[in-house]
């Protein structure tokens, strides 16, 4: 059986799994998502999270149709403002917006105004004056997206701010897990690798705890943030101990500049102790599934045969990414004034 087939069969759980929350397509009265922005998972209630996941389930269906286009965001302007280069997240947000009928504009600020000395707030004010409805922002500094959100009138979605949060990644991971396993509560989820610099790990920790998973983090202590044991995770510095009986193994990317002596001595040593290979994965549950937010360093944090193997959910994650972002855009757009002014 090929990897693709296995993913496809995993992706067919009894549907819907959770019936509470929003059901706009089915004509029920939508629950108004109680936030104007999505700046992080922190601050979302379990109900908020489930609402977004349920909406995303519907978006999956839309995306799998031949006719993928909805009109929810027709006439709306969405700006993808990326201060940090990103291919996949930006493409995912762009597709999500377009499938909902929005006019989407991509801006890579890294290459334009910042070099001319414009501050983040000036950039925000300038864009705000162009009257967008939704701004998707990625920035290299923690808290920068929240700062920008305070200066604009539209809804802001955090597409990653420094080492702080990356909420849509955590949502897409949760959706992927829920569809593959049918639940999140009670699952043992091991997050492995560079936790210290990872916004994905922080958002996932908060979300998985909110939905009742048993979360572990695994990595060398140089790559673990201080106080992580108080943030709802059991800490392991040994892969075999940490992976024992895990349901989900979530690998994180290790950035190249951190591999050569500054945080870990070498790629070789890192892969030996913390790279996910068949042997280490064997201590997890036999039906354990492997995830990675991408882009992967094959041979650094994950062996190729695992990344492409039957237990991998990595491609499924990418598909769920578009669905989750559609759900988020739709949920936030309910706050936008309509043609009658509200």
């Amino acid at each position: 059986m090929s990897a693709t087939e296995s993913v496809a069969c995993l992706a067919d759980p009894p549907f819907p799994l959770y019936s509470r929350g929003n059901m706009s397509l089915s004509g029920r009265e939508p629950r108004l998502f109680p936030h104007r922005h999505l700046l992080g998972i922190e601050g979302l209630s379990p109900d908020d999270i489930l609402q977004l996941l349920d909406m995303a389930e519907e978006a999956v269906e839309v995306s799998r149709q031949v006719e993928k286009k909805k009109t929810t965001l027709r006439g709306r302007t969405q700006i993808n403002l990326f201060f940090e280069a990103s291919t996949r997240t930006q493409a995912s947000f762009e597709l999500a917006g377009k499938r909902l009928g929005a006019d989407v504009m991509n801006m890579s600020v890294a290459s334009s105004s910042i070099k001319k000395g414009e501050t983040l707030i000036d950039t925000a004010m300038t864009l705000n004056a162009m009257r967008p409805d939704l701004i998707v922002v990625r920035h290299h500094a923690a808290g920068a997206v929240g700062l920008l959100a305070r200066k604009v009138d539209c809804s802001v979605i955090n597409a990653g701010d420094g080492a702080h949060e990356h909420p849509t990644q955590a949502l897409l991971d949760a959706l992927t897990i829920r569809r593959a396993k049918g639940r999140i509560r009670g699952l043992v989820v091991a997050i492995c690798g560079d936790i210290l610099h990872s916004r994905v790990a922080r958002s996932n920790l908060i979300l998985l705890n909110a939905l009742g998973a048993d979360v572990r983090v695994i990595g060398p202590t140089t790559l673990l943030p201080p106080g992580i044991e108080n943030m709802g995770a059991r800490v392991f510095t040994n892969m075999r101990d940490g992976l024992k009986d895990a349901d989900i193994v979530m690998m994180l990317r290790l950035q190249r500049e951190r591999m050569n002596g500054s945080f870990v001595p070498s790629v070789k040593e890192y892969f030996h102790y913390f790279g996910l290979d068949r042997e280490k994965l064997s201590v997890a549950k036999p039906d354990a599934l492997v995830m990675h937010p991408g882009p992967m360093n094959r041979g650094v944090e994950i062996a190729s045969d695992i990344a492409d193997g039957a237990q991998s959910l990595i491609r499924e994650q990418v598909e769920m990414g578009v669905a989750v972002r559609m759900a988020v855009l739709e949920a936030l757009s309910r706050h936008l004034p309509n043609a009658e002014g509200r």
């Binding site: 420094g162 922080r202 201080p226 106080g227 108080n230």
Partner: peptide, 13 residues
Amino acid sequence: NEGELSSRLGLPG
């Protein structure tokens, strides 16, 4: 300050 709060905020301590 380095500690749980800096970890939560994603800021180097």
